[in-house]
Design a binder for these strands. Structure first.
Length: 564
RNA sequence: UGUCCUGUGGUGUAAUUGGCAACACGUCUGACUCUGAAUCAGAAGAGUCCAGGUUCGACCCCUGGCAGGACAACCA
């Protein structure tokens, strides 16, 4: 199995609780010391960064202990699941860097086996066909504090249940008319143990088994048995299944599984600030058009993060750094952003882009002269080479980089001030030209030839500006993405209010930028750092002469803090 | 007024089976810088939910509270 390196040099000094459990299990030679995990998504939506944590955990644990990890689709509800989701899930897991080899499984692979197991339990007197309606079952289940009441069908003869179950399978009964229930304990303080439903009748076409079945197993019945059939040793899931664990074990007990039993272990799901994670809410955002789709770069989905420009390695490191435990948590997005910047800083090529251009004219630079200057592609990794940047008399710089009345500690350009133009010369601002409204339209400067980049010069300046040559710059659409919500915990709303009220109206700003010409030939997915600005990647919408860049995230900006 | 789970700096995670709390992110200084980025150096910030108890010694063990969460789909 592949386990991509996380470039994580921090020495591993302690084990998390899952590693401890597994280490102990191996020490006790449980399952012969085998470790086999699984990632079990339901194909009813797109994967998000919370799933990424689970994927990293399951595949990571397996490789760490020389085991295997299966990809298993939990496809027991044909009314919600679709092939489209299966495809996107596989793409996302692969993109994250994990390989399930030939072990691509489906709960639906086990429908026959599950049926046999169910018959076994009926014969054993541990399951029965119940003919109450869904409402009746709900009402008789009681509440967490009040015991439930037994079904009138609970003690019907085994032969009768067997016959009815067989006819349920054959399609003799309409949806909802009957269910198969485990016979456990309607008085149990654990609601999960109050005769849970194992099968329901659903005359629905399944994306894999077609019309072969009209009864489908419920999660609790299908999941643990699938784990068992696959030889899973550690069935890692999220906290909400904690109360299901007695049921998970009960089924295994009653099926008389003695050795190599899978063991369910729960951990706290990932929560991220400034976003929402529930599939239902994400679906809502898509359906209501608040975002452009599941892979909108503002979505916390893996496909959204991918389109946004996040790297698989950064997501893996993130999953590793947030750790895993059983307490509820809220990870600050800052942590994620740090992981991405760290990776992108190391790996992305630099380029210059001007977003709010103002013309800068070098009065003493020869008309018509063009110099091809060398720019380092990545100073963190100089062997990646250089690119050529044309320099000429008329440039564009960022409006923000010039102020007529600079505050103290302003290291940029102002009348009489000097700055370096990155990879070019030091210049001095002599005067400006304004329009009738008083806005600066031209900044006139003098350049100092002896300060050309690479030459020895005694002249020192505080600031360095990025720029593009007016004549050579190419135009690009740029989509500036920001946090989807304006508050850290958008789901934390008053009674009767909705998380949508915290949607950030400025989460997407479409603008244009002037780029250095080396960027004319880029392909979707390529990532860059626009110097002094941020990280950007080429969107799939991008075309040869109609470039589209997405802002992954900005560079840290301590000047913004000072000037505030 | 049931069962189960969880409480450690702002956030997250540690403290290897009891030895006066560590790491990462964040924050704040300063250095360096042809990216106000990165990097480097340093600082502040918790006495471990509370109260008892055991012990020479408790984040860790015991008792009792308190707080938060999960569970009442023919969803997963």
């Amino acid at each position: 199995m592949t386990n991509p390196s996380n470039n994580n040099t921090e020495p591993k000094t302690s084990l998390n609780f899952l590693e401890q459990i597994i280490t102990n299990d191996i020490a006790e030679n449980k399952a012969g010391g085998r470790v086999h995990t699984r990632f079990p998504p339901e194909p009813n939506g797109y994967l998000h960064i919370g799933h990424a944590k689970s994927i990293c955990l399951n595949f990571g644990l397996a490789s760490q202990f020389n085991g295997k990890c299966n990809l298993r689709f939990d496809d027991t509800n044909p009314t919600k699941e679709e092939q489209e989701y299966v495809d996107s899930i596989k793409e996302d897991v692969r993109w994250l860097g994990f390989d399930w080899e030939e072990r691509e499984f489906y709960a639906s692979d086990y429908f026959d086996k599950l049926y046999e197991f169910a018959v076994f339990l009926i014969k054993k007197g541990k399951a029965y066909v119940c003919e109450m309606t869904a409402e009746e079952i709900g009402a008789s289940r009681g509440t967490p504090a009040v015991p439930g009441k037994e079904s009138p069908w609970r003690d019907r003869p085994v032969e009768e249940s067997l016959d009815l179950f067989d006819r349920m399978r054959k399609g003799e009964f309409p949806d909802g008319s009957k269910v198969l229930r485990a016979k456990i304990d309607m008085g149990s303080p654990n609601m999960q143990m109050r005769d849970p439903v194992m099968y329901r009748i659903l005359h629905a076409r399944h994306h894999r088994t077609g019309d072969n079945w009209c009864i489908y197993p419920m999660y609790d019945w299908a999941h643990g048995q699938s784990d068992y059939l696959e030889g899973i040793t550690h069935s890692v899931c999220t906290l909400e299944f904690e109360v299901h664990r007695p049921l998970y074990d009960w089924f295994l007990d009653e099926l008389e599984v003695k050795n190599d039993r899978p063991r369910q272990i729960e951990f706290a799901r990932l929560n991220l600030s400034y976003t929402v994670m529930s599939k239902r809410k994400l679906l809502g955002l898509v359906q209501e058009g608040h975002v452009a789709g599941w892979n909108d770069p503002r979505m916390p989905t893996i496909s959204g993060l991918r389109r946004r420009g996040y790297t698989p390695a950064s997501l893996r490191v993130f999953a590793d750094r947030v750790g895993v435990a059983k307490r509820e948590n809220m990870i600050e997005v800052g942590m994620l952003e740090h992981c991405v910047r760290e990776d992108l800083n190391r790996t992305s090529a630099r380029a210059m882009a001007v977003f709010n251009p103002v013309k800068l004219i070098i009065d003493n630079y020869p008309d018509g002269q063009v110099e091809e200057l060398k720019g380092i592609l990545n100073p963190e990794n100089p062997e990646t080479g250089t690119r050529l940047i044309p320099f000429s008399k008329t440039l564009y710089i960022e409006k923000d980089d010039f102020l007529e009345d600079p505050p103290k500690k302003f290291f940029r350009l102002f009348p009489g001030g000097e700055v370096r133009l990155k990879y070019a010369y030091i210049i001095r601002c002599d005067h400006v030209v304004k329009d009738e409204r008083g806005a600066v339209t031209e900044i006139h400067c003098t350049y100092f030839p002896e300060t050309k980049s690479g030459m020895q010069s005694d002249k020192k300046v505080k600031g360095t500006l990025h720029w593009v040559s007016a004549e050579h710059a190419i135009k690009s659409e740029v989509r500036l993405y920001d946090r989807l919500f304006t508050v850290p915990e958008p789901e934390d709303v008053e009674e009767g209010e909705d998380f949508r009220k915290h949607l950030n109206p400025d989460s997407l700003v479409v603008t244009t930028a002037l780029l250095e010409p080396a960027l004319a030939d880029v392909w979707p997915g390529q990532r860059f750092q626009f110097e002094r600005n941020g990280y950007y990647c080429v969107d799939p919408d991008s075309r040869q002469n109609a470039l589209v860049f997405n802002r992954t995230l900005s560079l840290r900006d301590s000047w913004a803090k000072i000037s505030r």
